[in-house]
Design a protein around this nucleic acid. Structure first.
Lengths: 191, 191
DNA sequence: GGTGCAGTTCACGCGGTCTTGAACTATATG
DNA sequence: CATATAGTTCAAGACCGCGTGAACTGCACC
């Protein structure tokens, strides 16, 4: 099911699912490794795989190529690319001689991660806070809530705030921290 | 489905799913809020809910009580408690007069998060690294891989390392950072 | 030993997410 | 304008994880 597959050889059987591109075994491994990380971070595995492929190849590929290399469906590739593009980690380019779009990897993966994490976080932690505030309001209004219970509720809210702060900080430092490497990633895409 | 429910009133209908404990509405909200965060962080929603309930109540509850308050199944509660206990965020105590175990909230939720994140991370990033190393080895062995491709692969590995480092750092600082609040959380459970 | 309750384990079902595949739109080419 | 190819959208289905509920274990008390 994975898509690890043979290294050389021509098409073995012509069963429909099988004939994929010629992803080298080492590419398959690297691509999947990235897929795993990315999935771990709450994205779709295949978003990571697509990006990794584009990055490793260095040059822009067409949707069709991606489809074959990673053995994904047309529709799937379309959606994945749209996501990646929206997040700014993949750029769509039109080669003059070619009639189809091509997609190239942008190097700041971090942008994607921080971007989306921030976003999710914003909408999310915000809601949590609202909920906790609401709970507090209700508890206070209802009157018959023991004081220490209330106190604990408040502390919970405080905790949430601190965690939030820590998270923001993390995203920020991570961005800076990794900034250097990004430079490294980038430098040869130009050469 | 959620479990928000009525505030007063006796049992409305005796339909099987319905009769739960008397979770106050504000408790329900707070509990769910925690559940959401925790879920967001990659744990199970109900793990967060259980912990929150125990924390808010201040005193240890029995599994049966938890079951009723949060409207969960016996088996579910058992498993959830086991997880929480293993992570050190819930403590099992036996009151002398009581025949059943009771479960109390430990205040360092952070311990749970950092602990488990570290753990997951350890097993996880470790594997990623291994995979990338493997890919690199294969690529080098196979010989016919363009040099820049190899270079990109290496940079990817570097990136992974840095991200890993950033994560570790985050966990560490978060722990310190929140340490203060933990003190706050703790202080009244003693009084 | 028997009864009853607390707690554990696990196969199954439900719900949600991701992917597929086909219908559809858009764009180029003869 | 007809045809082919690239790209998008979406309903249906595959897949996966969680919680349930029932069978089971363990323990206490009679």
């Amino acid at each position: 099911m994975k898509g690890y597959l043979w290294t050389g050889g021509l098409e073995a059987g012509r069963g429909e699912g099988s004939s994929n591109g010629r992803l080298a075994p080492w590419e398959a491994i690297a691509v999947d490794a990235v897929g795993n990380v990315i999935e771990f971070w709450g994205f779709k595995r295949n978003q990571g795989r697509v990006w990794a492929l584009l990055y490793l190849r260095g040059e822009p590929l067409t949707a069709g190529e991606i489809e074959r290399e990673l053995d994904l469906s047309k529709g799937g590739v379309s959606m994945l690319l749209r996501d990646l593009e929206r997040w700014g980690v993949v750029r769509r380019v039109r080669l003059p001689q070619d009639s189809a779009w091509r997609y190239g990897a942008e190097t700041d993966l971090i942008r994607m991660v921080s971007h989306v994490i921030e976003e999710r976080e914003a909408g999310f932690i915000e809601r949590i806070r609202a909920d906790l505030a609401e709970a507090r309001r209700m508890a206070e209004e209802s009157g018959n809530v023991p004081r220490e219970h209330l106190a604990r509720l408040e502390k919970m809210a405080t905790l949430a705030e601190h965690v939030e702060r820590a998270l923001r900080l993390f995203v920020k430092t991570a961005r800076l921290d990794v900034g250097g490497i990004l430079g490294a990633l980038r430098e040869d895409s130009q050469r």
